[in-house]
Computed example of a mutant assay.
Amino acid sequence: MGSPLSPALLAIAASALAMTAIVGVRYLITSGLFALVTHRVRPGLYAGMNRQIRAEIGWSLLSAAIYGLPSGIVAWGWQAHGWTRIYTQASAHPLWWMPLSVILFLFAHDTWFYWTHRWMHRPRVFRIAHAVHHASRPPTAWAAMSFHPLEALTGAVVVPALVFLIPIHAAMLGLVLTIMTVMGITNHMGWEIFPRALVHSRLGHWLITASHHHRHHEQYRCNYGLYFRFWDHLCGTDRGVSAP
């Protein structure tokens, strides 16, 4: 008869399961909400795409489990042992650090995403993993987390790693996760939710919205960024915006 699991292992497993449930439910609610908005604003846009949408939901829920594991371990370590540089007392750092920490998290995440995304467009890696995401033609609001497990793993480690490196208030971390969720969905909706005045403004020249990312799904070899167009501009991979 095997020895019982230690309380620590049980606590880690419970934390990972809880985070998996949170990520999965958050995905279903937020993607479902934006899919409903699409149905109201662009009726018929997803007509005939039920099979694709079912596949997107299936891959996304699998991705939720992959995202939940490292997040659950880190959450347990933070609560039980004070791991990470997450803080809850606003006085622990100057107030100006709060918005700066959000910018640093987003830029670091965007940098990681850009370069791993370009790597996943190498033919062999694309066939093995990234083709799952590009099977969404065109993408829908349900496609934001539609990843092969190998691709999901590259995304799942970013924020859990950053909380060990960059001090961030718990509320600001929540803001980062909210921006990550909203932009991940709106970039894949198949239509532009933001005003044209923003998309074609000087600010829009540096931000990624559906108009920019849709071109990536059309042409594949361009527009690799997640939040910002900085790396695309710098590396000559920006091909402007499409008209979804």
Results as ranks from 00 to 15, higher is better:
L165T: 08
G204F: 13
L198Q: 02
L198F: 14
V182N: 08
R196Y: 12
N187V: 07
M180V: 06
V199D: 04
E192L: 00
V163C: 10
M183Y: 03
T181W: 01
A170G: 12
T178D: 01
I193V: 07
M189Q: 13
G190A: 07
G174T: 05
G184W: 06
H200R: 10
P167K: 08
F164V: 10
I168T: 00
W191S: 07
M183E: 03
G190F: 11
G184R: 14
M183D: 02
A171E: 13
G204I: 14
M180Y: 09
M180F: 06
S201D: 07
L177R: 14
M189D: 05
M172Y: 04
A170N: 06
V176A: 00
I166W: 10
G204Q: 12
N187Q: 04
A170E: 10
T186K: 01
T186A: 00
V199T: 15
T178F: 11
M172K: 00
T181Y: 01
H188Y: 07
A170D: 11
W191K: 12
V176L: 05
M172S: 14
G174W: 12
G190M: 08
P167V: 14
L198K: 09
A171G: 15
N187C: 13
T186R: 04
L177S: 08
L203F: 13
I185D: 05
G190V: 01
M172D: 11
L177F: 10
